[in-house]
C-alpha cells in the first residue's frame, strides 16, 4: 500500500438532534444508499470517502455521533480535531431547529475555533410538512456565520454538494494554513503528537 494516497485528510463531524437524518446523510454520501428502517448500523465508527477535487485526492473521514446525542450525552472528545462540523436539523421538526443554539454552545466549548460549520436543514422531500422556513434558517445561519444548505438524504438532494463544497472549502482553508492541525502541531524539537497507535508500529 502506498503511504501517500491522498493529498488532504479532513475530519468531518455530524451533530444535531436525534432523528434529523445525520446517519442517513452520511450513508447516502458514502454508500449511495438510503437505509430503510430505523436501526443504527452497529460497529460503524466513521465512514471514509475519498473524493477528487481539481485533481487532488481528498480523504474525508466522516464521523457520526454513535447515537450519543439521543440523551444529550455526546463526548467532548468527539469534537476534538474536527476540521468541519455539519450541524443538522430537520425542516419538519421545529424542536430540532430550536435546539441549535444549544449545539452551538457545545461547539464553542469543545471544538477548535477554526472549525468550519455548515448548517443543514434535512428532509426537504417532506416540504409539505415543513415547520422551519428557509428564510428563518438563512437568517439564523447568517447571524452565526455558518454556511447553510437544505438537503434530502432520501432523495439524494444536495448531499453530494454538501460534502464536496465542504471539501473545497476545507482545501482552501488548508491552503491558507489556518487549519486546526496547526494548533496542536508541535514546535520544533518537541515530542510530536502521537496518533493512531497501531500494532504494526512496534516490535
Amino acid at each position: 500500500m502506498s503511504m501517500e494516497d491522498y493529498d488532504f485528510l479532513f475530519k468531518i463531524v455530524l451533530i444535531g438532534n436525534a432523528g434529523v437524518g445525520k446517519t442517513c446523510l452520511v450513508r447516502r454520501f458514502t454508500q449511495g444508499l438510503f437505509p430503510p428502517g430505523q436501526g443504527a448500523t452497529i460497529g460503524v465508527d466513521f465512514m471514509i470517502k475519498t473524493v477528487e477535487i481539481n485533481g487532488e485526492k481528498v480523504k474525508l473521514q466522516i464521523w457520526d455521533t454513535a447515537g450519543q446525542e439521543r440523551f444529550r450525552s455526546i463526548t467532548q472528545s468527539y469534537y476534538r480535531s474536527a476540521n468541519a462540523l455539519i450541524l443538522t436539523y430537520d425542516i419538519t421538526c421545529e424542536e430540532s431547529f430550536r435546539c441549535l443554539p444549544e449545539w452551538l454552545r457545545e461547539i464553542e466549548q469543545y471544538a477548535s475555533n477554526k472549525v468550519i460549520t455548515v448548517l443543514v436543514g434535512n428532509k426537504i422531500d417532506l416540504a409539505e410538512r415543513r415547520e422551519v422556513s428557509q428564510q428563518r434558517a438563512e437568517e439564523f445561519s447568517e447571524a452565526q456565520d455558518m454556511y447553510y444548505l437544505e438537503t434530502s438524504a432520501k432523495e439524494s438532494d444536495n448531499v453530494e454538494k454538501l460534502f464536496l463544497d465542504l471539501a473545497c472549502r476545507l482545501i482552501s482553508e488548508a491552503r491558507q494554513n489556518t487549519l486546526v492541525n496547526n494548533v496542536s502541531s508541535p514546535l520544533p524539537g518537541e515530542g510530536k503528537s502521537i496518533s493512531y497507535l497501531t500494532c504494526c508500529n512496534f516490535n
Partner: peptide, 10 residues
C-alpha cells in the same frame, strides 16, 4: 469542480 468520487479500501 471536476470530481471523481473514489472510495477506497485502505
Amino acid at each position: 469542480t471536476n470530481n471523481t468520487v473514489i472510495a477506497k479500501l485502505q
